[in-house]
Computed example of a mutant assay.
Amino acid sequence: MAERPIFIPSVDSPGFVKVVSFDIPFATGFAPVQKQKNVRSLHAAAAHDGYSPLLEISSKSQEKAGRHLSAFHLKVDTASGLIPLENAFQGSKVFEHGGPYIDLYQTDPRSAKRDPRLKDSGRLVAFELDGNEFPLQPSTVFYDWLYLNAIYPHREWLRERIDGSMRYAGYTDIEFNPNKSINCQAKSCALFVSLTRAGLLDKAMNSAEGFIAFMSEQIQLRRSQPERANQLHF
């Protein structure tokens, strides 16, 4: 058994995303058939509690939209050009003793993720991209910014494909283990849907500095004053 989350767009939740976890029988192994078996188990458990349909956001998704929304498929427009999202994330890390390692922008995503400097440079202290510094709190703000920037140019297509008539109840990423990671492409996708539904997407994406301030304010607002969750400020 393993615990895996689903991510539900929710303008009333901290960070605009509600997280619900389920214990599921977990098939081990790296074969796609094993991964897809786990996806079906998670979606079935969620459907039993009324969360259906769900869209798997990963290369293991059986739907084209889910595969195209995988972080390894997406690219981010930066001052260094159009680069894979994973490269932008890894190459922008700033550590106590080094970074950002912007040469990682030009390698392949898997090599960027495995670069030994990412483990040998001390504690992670921030992210830096295109002259903008991103703090470690809110905990996923930099990854969310990258992901939303990658899909923002396709927002009209996405509104129709993944959120037409509230098409999906939530999003999953079977590769994501909450005991090992905090950033998740399914969570970022749910954030995109929430901001779209709230009419806040364009404002949130206006600038990196504004996005950081906006997400920080909204998370604090919903945690401290849940009764005012519907009072959205920018």
Rank of each mutant, 00 (worst) to 15 (best):
V76M: 02
I151D: 01
Y51K: 13
V193C: 06
Q137D: 14
G66R: 01
S61Y: 02
L42E: 03
K35L: 15
E63N: 14
F142T: 01
G50Q: 07
G98W: 03
L74G: 06
N206K: 08
D108R: 14
A150R: 02
H73Y: 13
P153K: 11
A47D: 12
D115K: 04
A208F: 06
S58A: 08
Q34P: 07
E227T: 08
S80V: 06
T140A: 11
F142P: 00
L82Q: 08
L191T: 03
G15M: 02
S188E: 03
F142N: 01
P32D: 02
H68D: 11
A204H: 03
E209F: 14
L54R: 01
F7I: 00
F7M: 00
R159V: 09
S121A: 11
L118G: 04
S121Y: 01
S92P: 02
F26G: 07
P226R: 02
N179S: 12
D77H: 13
P178G: 05
L104W: 01
Q218N: 11
A186P: 00
M215Q: 08
K60M: 15
S59C: 15
K35G: 08
M205N: 11
G91C: 07
Q36T: 06
K35C: 10
F134C: 04
H154N: 09
A150F: 07
P178W: 02
I57Y: 00
A2N: 06
L82K: 13
K203F: 00
S224L: 05
Q220I: 10
I174Q: 01
P14M: 06
A190I: 02
F234W: 14
A47H: 07
